[in-house]
Design a protein around this nucleic acid. Sequence first.
DNA 1: GCATTAACCACAG
DNA 2: CTGTGGTTAATGC
Length: 226
Amino acid sequence: MEKTPCRNCNFISTAAAILNDEELNLLENSCAHVEFEKGEIIFKQDAFSSNVVYIKSGLVKVHLKGIHRDQIIKIAKGPTFLGLPTTFADKVNQYSATAIEKTIACFIDIDAFKHFIYKNGVFAYEIIINLCREELDNFQKCVNHKQKNVHGRVADTLLHVSRSIFESDEFLFPLTRNEFADLIATSRESISRILGEFHEDKIISVVGRKMKILDFDRLDYISRNG
DNA sequence: GCATTAACCACAG
DNA sequence: CTGTGGTTAATGC
């Protein structure tokens, strides 16, 4: 795994897949492959950065310091780019990324990355598509956060984790109750109570972090009407 | 007013 | 790290 050249990488991005031979050579000489264990910080808010981070596999929480506590922006699942906005918009990271599962990442030198954007329009196009999708997701998330009550947001998160992250009705929830609270801007206690209620009502089954969705219809209803 | 929602605090396991 | 109970402030009917 360590020495796999980018051109043969199983997790290659749709953007990098477009690069020509010469560009791939540059990419291979400009990126470092790093493995992170659960809990390790991939990059930190306020630290200087000159890399684009590409997550090959694993789960990462993207989080940012708030006035009172941390706010978790999202759970990112590889393969995906991380930290494009933070790297291009500023010299210093505007947010942190921490592995919440064993994660494999590549650090790509910003100058090489810029070179691809300047010289290869299709590469740039793929990157823009990615950024657009993320912005649309964020708009959606913003509306949901502002308009839904806590039950709705919890239901939302469970559905998202089940469908988009684990693609299964049964999973080991990747965050602590506190982090869950930081993700949807509520309190640890509310999370605890609501999960208890959902369990009681047989909408989901909860044993510690082990969760299983029993009634997608009702969860969906709560998510939409919460 | 009265009910509801959800945050904060404190105190166990 | 979690769950629970009491309290409280804000908001709605």
